Amino acid sequence: MNNGAQIMVAGIGSPHGDDQAGWEVARQIERRGLTHVRVKLARTPADLLDWIEPDMNIVICDACRGAGAAGSVHHWEWPCGQLDEIRWSGTHQMSLVGVLALAEQLGKLPEHVQIYGIELQSDHSEETISDIVQSGVIAAVESICEKLNPAVRQGEMEHA
Score class of each variant (00 low, 15 high):
Thr35Gly: 08
Met8Trp: 10
Trp76Phe: 15
Asn2Asp: 13
Ala69Gly: 05
Ala63Gln: 09
Arg87Ala: 06
Ser143Cys: 01
Ile29Asn: 12
Ala26Asn: 04
Glu127Asp: 11
Leu49Asp: 01
Asp62Cys: 05
Asn57Arg: 10
Glu77Ile: 03
Gly17Asp: 03
Arg31His: 14
Ser72Lys: 05
Ser135Asn: 13
Glu119Gln: 15
Ala139His: 09
Ala70His: 04
Asp131Gly: 13
Gly33Gln: 03
Ser14Lys: 11
Tyr116Asp: 00
Glu77Met: 05
Pro110Gly: 07
Ala69Ile: 09
Asp50Gly: 07
Val99Asn: 07
Glu156Asn: 10
Asp62Trp: 11
His124Gly: 00
Trp23Gln: 06
His16Arg: 12
Gln154Val: 06
Gly98Asp: 15
Ser89Val: 14
Arg43Met: 12
Met56Asp: 08
Ser89Asp: 02
Trp88Asp: 00
Ile144Arg: 08
Leu83Asp: 00
Gly71Gln: 07
Ser89Ala: 15
Gly4Met: 10
Val133Glu: 00
Ser143Asn: 11
Leu34Ser: 07
His16Asn: 02
Gly71Pro: 04
His74Val: 01
Leu102Phe: 14
Ile129Trp: 09
Ile7Arg: 06
Leu120Thr: 11
Gly136Thr: 12
His92Lys: 00
Asp55Cys: 02
Gly90Thr: 07
Gly11Arg: 09
Gly66Val: 07
Pro15Ile: 02
Val73Cys: 03
Leu106Pro: 07
Asp62Ala: 13
Ile86His: 09
Ala26Cys: 04
Ile138Val: 15
Ala21Asn: 11
Lys40Trp: 13
Arg38Ala: 02
Arg65Leu: 10
Thr128Asp: 13
Thr35Asn: 10
Ile132Asp: 10
Ala139Glu: 13
Pro54Ser: 15
Val25Trp: 03
Arg153Cys: 01
Gly11Phe: 08
Leu100Ala: 05
Trp51Tyr: 13
His16Glu: 02
Ala46His: 06
Pro54His: 11
Asp131Cys: 03
Ala42Gly: 08
Lys108His: 08
Ala5Arg: 14
Val137Met: 03
Ile12His: 01
Asp84Cys: 01
Pro15His: 14
Ser143Pro: 00
Ile86Cys: 07
Leu34Trp: 10
Leu109Pro: 02
Ser125Trp: 15
Gln105Gly: 05
Leu48Cys: 04
Glu104Asp: 03
Leu102Cys: 08
Pro54Gln: 09
Met94Val: 13
Asp50Leu: 11
Trp76Arg: 05
Val25Cys: 06
Gly81Pro: 13
Ser122Arg: 12
Val152His: 08
Trp88Asn: 00
Cys64Val: 15
Ser143Lys: 05
Ile144Pro: 05
Gln105Thr: 14
Gly66Thr: 03
Arg32Trp: 09
Gln82Ser: 11
Arg65Ser: 12
Gly90Gln: 09
His92Ser: 15
Arg43Lys: 08
His112Glu: 12
Leu96Met: 14
Gln134Cys: 00
Gly22His: 12
Ile86Tyr: 10
Asn57Leu: 01
Val37Pro: 10
Ile144Met: 09
Ala160Glu: 11
Arg27Lys: 15
Gln134Ile: 03
Leu96Lys: 08
Val133Ile: 06
Asp18Met: 01
His75Trp: 13
Ala139Cys: 04
Gln121Ala: 12
Asp47His: 12
Asp18Trp: 06
